[in-house]
């Protein structure tokens, strides 16, 4: 086995209940996460990402398959015997302990001598910039500060893998952006493998080294943010990551004919049959009538830097174009224009 693998999940499945009432939370997931990697499990709620995380933490035991941590089988190891720590969505800070006692809890339970605990706590609190709050109680801190305490508490025992269960979901947008770069910095500084669970695709794209997209208990695609965005494996991934237009088409003569009768020259993996074209809004440009596919503007949304135009094609399908606001003349609703389509992903229908 590759010694650079931190977590290796093989055919992990989790089924709740038995018989007719059985619910499959996790299908048959296989995944290798490299040491020192910032790995994100991304998917809508109920997709099994948290279940997978809880299996790695040890709070759930998979009903099938195995999980290895640095080569050791930990499938049935209890959480308190795994060198893995979790940052909980609700933080789960101990309300009766001070910030320093919270952060030192894991080390104390590991039986580290008191002076070593004190030193580690001071070091980790400095890392998350909370030195002056050491003697406060969690309920005296703001949400963002509590978040940092939860992080510090999970980092203090220096786990091999840090698990983060949607830790930023309770923060407001500004704080969330701040914590995103903070997390990235902490991960680089400590070199610890981070496994991050989120349903926020933007968060996943900005922070991760690699992303695993999940849906309905299955892992659909694993790749770098760039790969996932530019080369989605299927319609679900394309739709979930960023905004995407879908146009149905048929393959004929190595080209794709869409509903309007227009023919697009795109790179094809298949030679015949029905396909779905995934087109990012920024790949759609608006051109004068006659120089592209005929379209009519049905809606405009000014977004600051960009303007989003919703356009209706002749066959009734809609397509969204994202255009830089300052470089184009504003189009109005009802304007007859034409569109030109740049890069297109062809997906099997």
């Amino acid at each position: 086995m590759n010694t650079n693998v931190a977590v290796d999940a093989q055919n992990v499945g989790k089924i709740y209940g038995i018989g007719n009432s059985a619910v499959t939370a996790l299908g048959d997931v296989s995944l290798s996460i490299q040491k020192g990697e910032f790995f994100t499990l991304l998917g809508p709620s109920g997709c099994g990402k948290t279940t997978l995380l809880r299996c790695i933490a040890g709070f759930e035991t998979p009903t099938s398959g195995a999980i290895h941590l640095s080569g050791r089988d930990i499938t049935h190891t209890p959480p308190n015997a795994r060198p893995v720590n979790t940052v909980f969505q609700s933080y789960a800070l101990f309300p009766h302990l001070t910030v320093a006692q919270n952060v030192g809890f894991g080390l104390k339970m590991l039986g580290k001598p008191a002076d070593e605990v004190t030193k580690s706590v001071a070091r980790v609190l400095a890392l998350v910039k909370l030195e002056e709050f050491a003697d406060r109680f969690p309920q005296q801190l703001s949400g963002g500060q509590q978040q940092r305490v939860a992080l510090a508490r999970a980092l203090a025992p220096e786990p091999e893998v840090l698990l983060l269960d949607e830790p930023l979901s309770a923060l407001d947008l500004k704080l969330r952006k701040e914590m995103q770069s903070e997390l990235k910095r902490l991960q680089t500084e400590t070199g610890i493998t981070f496994i991050f669970v989120t349903h926020d695709q933007e968060e996943a794209l900005t922070m991760s080294d690699r992303i695993g997209v999940m849906s309905r208990g299955a892992l659909l695609q694993v790749g770098t943010p760039h790969e996932i965005y530019e080369n989605p494996a299927d319609r679900f991934v394309a739709d979930f990551i960023g905004e995407t237009n879908f146009l149905e088409g048929t393959v004929a003569d190595g080209k794709v004919r869409i509903g309007t009768g227009d023919v697009l020259d795109v790179a094809l993996k298949v030679q015949t049959g029905a396909v779905t074209l995934a087109i990012r809004p920024e790949q759609v440009s608006i051109v004068p009538t006659g120089s592209g596919i005929a379209a009519k503007i049905t809606e405009t949304t000014y977004m600051g830097t960009d303007t989003h135009y919703t356009l209706a094609l002749d066959d009734g399908s809609d397509i969204v174009a994202r255009v830089q606001s300052n470089t184009t003349q504003a189009h109005k609703v009802g304007d007859a224009v034409a569109i030109r389509i740049g890069t297109v992903q062809v997906l099997q229908s």
């Binding site: 933490a57 709070f59 308190n80 015997a81 979790t86 789960a92 800070l93 101990f94 809890f105 339970m109």
Partner: peptide
């Protein structure tokens, strides 16, 4: 908050 039990269990208690 029963999550605290998980937190303790996670932190080697």
């Amino acid at each position: 908050d029963f999550k605290l039990i998980e937190a303790g269990y996670d932190l080697y208690a």
